[in-house]
Structure formats: C-alpha cells, structure tokens
Design a protein around this nucleic acid. Sequence first.
DNA 1: CTAGGTGCTCGACCGCGGTCGAGCACAAGG
DNA 2: CCTTGTGCTCGACCGCGGTCGAGCACCTAG
Lengths: 141, 141
Amino acid sequence: MERIGIGEVSRRTGLGVHTIRLYEDEGFFLGAIERDGLGRRTYDPDDVDWLEKVALLREADMPVARIAEYARLARAGASDAERLAVLVGHRQRLADDLELTRRRLALMDEKIDRYRAHLEQGGSGPPWREVVRARASAPGP
Amino acid sequence: MERIGIGEVSRRTGLGVHTIRLYEDEGFFLGAIERDGLGRRTYDPDDVDWLEKVALLREADMPVARIAEYARLARAGASDAERLAVLVGHRQRLADDLELTRRRLALMDEKIDRYRAHLEQGGSGPPWREVVRARASAPGP
DNA sequence: CTAGGTGCTCGACCGCGGTCGAGCACAAGG
DNA sequence: CCTTGTGCTCGACCGCGGTCGAGCACCTAG
C-alpha cells in the first residue's frame, strides 16, 4: 500500500487541501487518517476512492452533515436500508428543490408576461412609473 | 394618504420589522421612507404595494442585490428594456438552477439504482464494507 | 548555510439573507 | 408615577461550506 500525502490527494481529486482536512474534521472518512513520523496525514488509495465517492455526493449537493451521517453509518456497519435511506432522503430533497424552482420559474414567467403585455398595450412604462413621478413632483417635507 | 408604522407594514406583508428595515438599507424602496416627528418610519399604502412586489421577487429567489438594482432602475427612470432585462436575467438563472438540480437528481438516481442492484445481486452490503472490514481487522499503529 | 517543498494548527474571513437583543426614546393612559 | 406600546440604532450571531493566511516544523538539494 503506497501512502500518499495530502497534496497528492488534492491533485488526484481536485479538492483543495484545506477542504480535504475540513472533510476529515467533519468525519467523512471511514477510519482515522494515519500520520507519518512528522505528523503529516498519509492516505492510501482506498481513502482516495472513498473521498471521490463522497465528493460526488457533495456534487449532488448533499449537505456535509448528511454525508458525515452516511459515513458514520458505513463505519458503524449499519444496515443497508439505513445507508440507502440517507441517499433516498437526499434524492427526495432534490425532488422538492426541483419543484420549488419550477414554481419560482413559473412566477417569473408570469411577471415577465405581464410586463410584456403591459408594454404592448401602449404602456409607456411599468405600472410604477406613476408612483415615481408622483414622488418626484411632490417631494416630502 | 394614511401613513402607517412599520409594525403595521409588518402585519400586512408578513415580513418582520427587522427585515423591512434591512430592505430599506438595501435600497428596495422607490423613494426615501419618511419619518414622523419622533424619528419613526412612516409608510404609505403605495410603499406597501411596492414592498409586496419586491417580496414576491424574493420569493422567486431573486438575490437582494438584484432587487436593489431593479429598484434603482425604477427610481432612475431607466428604459423598460433595462428593467425587463433584470427580470429575464433572473429567469435565466432559475432555468439554470432547474437544469442543475435535474442533473443532481439524475446523479442520485444513478447512485441509488446501483446500490439497489448491488443488494439484489446478493451483495451482503455496500461495495465498501470490505474496506471497513479490512480496517477493522488490521487497526493502525 | 540557505532555499524550496511539504505539511501542520488555529483562527479569521467570505457571501447570503436574515434574525435577534440590548439599551434607548417617547407618548398615551390608568 | 409607572406601565405598555411603538419604534429607533448598532452590532452580534446564525447556517453553510468553504477559503485563506500566519507562523511554525521538518527534510532534502545545491
């Protein structure tokens, strides 16, 4: 087993060294990361494989705490169902996000359509221009 | 024109008073909010109408800075196209978000499918169990 | 001896959008 | 007089996930 340094892990995974250390603090790894005689972290290729897996979960926007939980279950030898549930739980969150974004998009489309309709109907400006004018012509005390 | 206090605005819009003051600092309003003799903000119904509109933009997740820009354009009497562009720009961002979330969802689905396939194929655990076992049976120094 | 490379810890800072509390001022009403 | 209600400012704090820098230790090559 070759043992590699954090810089090499960074190069292989594309993660910054600060981030890798952070992930360790958050409990992402399956076991404790060993140190060499100088106190430097040393990783083996399995660590890197695992790290790439959890980094992929991050790319899927799984929250750090969720990933930590996932790793904790793996460490503790929890049932398959429990681990799977974490993945499925996040999938659900993404599905909800998708729906939320859809609604927001619909909202913007509605606003934009109204705006355009207003302009085409000969509106010389948005519905607020009058308000701005009123303020301009009647400045406060 | 009735002038109402910030508490009443809060009640009408559902926004917290802190938030309303924050929005003022961010430049959301079309004009300066007047104060009464005691230094308290007073709003008229037009302010509330406008505030409800920008709050709707927030519900569509438009960033505060973008809304501020939108308001600035309205104040400055910018062209319709400019104002519309802000809305359309945000619409685009939402469309991008939607696509991103779709990709993340696909990623999770793939992971989950793989996991399930692995279990059905008689795997007694996830592909990493071996790694965990190896660590457990050969604990470090 | 010095420079360069690798790594360490600790703590600050970033964006984002609130959210809260302390400590104050003032008015109305019992 | 004292309470209650309303509001003010200023600055701290939250979650989230990094990202960075300072100051240090140590090895190796020239």
